[in-house]
Design a protein around this nucleic acid. Structure first.
Lengths: 200, 200
DNA sequence: TTTGGAATTGTCCACATTGGTCAATATATG
DNA sequence: CATATATTGACCAATGTGGACAATTCCAAA
């Protein structure tokens, strides 16, 4: 890519990034058209190719940028938190901050995992792996909560994971998401699960 | 559509249906190509148009067929069950039966809800509405479980809904799904949530 | 004001893909 | 055999594709 891209004012950068994330997320690599991206970003075709050389270069940049951004945001927000429930609370709050700036970043990453084209997989796999490993390493540092005998730690984590991602994607579908309201809702479910699953 | 379609042996019908569900689910109406559908179904282009007239006709048939099939399967499996947890257990087992025959039917319905083209919305909206209403009417007949004071009925339902759909879509992504194993897993989570949320 | 390099445009193009048609052929049935 | 029906796949006009590039706008320094 052309590094001059980062000299643009960040508002314009983000318009290009968000339009690209959106169309790749919704349509996959093959069916996301650069014409559509350009139209949604409000820039000319020439400019997009000026900064990213070709479609693959754009995709590759987005993978790189997204993983970097997500991990940075996690690190910034989660810090050294080791308490189990507090960790998830902070992690989700970090995710919502991402959503605030890049509403389609998660869906993009999700779709990237499902791409089949070998060239595209070769580009994205290492970065996606890196993301996955980083998240796992957070979890390894957590304290074990004092659970009721009816539930295991793995089960609790499954409940948290799916509930949170379900609530999030539900909001995303309903037009403009409200990250603050969502933050409160997610917090309340995490605390609910804490109450239900731990011994007092 | 051409009613002769139903005279084909059901194996062939399902190959056409599944290929169509798959490509519409993954790419949306606009970007799902009839060439791809035909290739995946292992039939000729002419045959597809012989039975469904045009792309819109095919889509319209699929919406109709899917909603009809889902509701039939629910009715068959759930019956008159009114116990709260038993109901969800049966409902999920019905869903898994659908998955067994039509792995992409849910994703198709999900994507249909997100279509923006007005013609397509006009086709799918009434059927999707019908589906939604039917599911709601089941829920209205349920007994209220005896919950711990920490949790409300709405919260419990949210936990069940997202956990179940999360577990399901996780399986779907991992190549060939194993509905029997998934059934057991989902049952165990429903029973877990029952234990955690009810007073003994 | 002038100048020169950078950002930005949008038209243009060769080619691929699109939904859909249709005459030809295979298959089954009686 | 004959007849009807299921099925094929080459073909088409229209549209969409990624990418190139000469032309323009913009803006800071001289």
């Amino acid at each position: 890519m052309n590094e001059k891209f980062f000299d643009l004012k960040s508002e314009k950068q983000d318009k290009m990034i968000n339009a690209s994330l959106h169309l790749f997320a919704d349509n996959g690599y093959k069916h996301a058209s650069t014409d559509d991206i350009v139209r949604e970003a409000g820039i000319s075709k020439g400019l997009l190719f000026h900064y990213f050389i070709n479609k693959q270069g754009l995709y590759s940049f987005l993978i790189d940028y997204s993983v970097r951004y997500l991990l940075y945001e996690y690190d910034r927000t989660v810090g050294e938190e080791t308490d189990y429930f507090a960790f998830f609370d902070k992690l989700e709050s970090a995710k919502l901050n991402v959503l605030r700036n890049y509403p389609y970043m998660y869906k993009f990453i999700d779709r990237a995992m499902a791409e089949t084209d070998p060239d595209i997989k070769a580009i994205s796999n290492p970065e996606l792996e890196r993301y996955h490993l980083a998240v796992e390493s957070y979890k390894n540092k957590l304290s074990t909560p004092n659970l009721r005998s009816a539930i295991t730690l793995a089960q609790l984590e499954t409940l948290i994971k799916h509930t949170v991602s379900g609530l999030t994607s539900e909001q995303l579908k309903s037009g403009r998401p409200d990250p603050d309201a969502l933050n409160i809702e997610i917090s309340s479910y995490i605390s609910l699960l804490k109450t239900l699953s731990t011994v007092s």
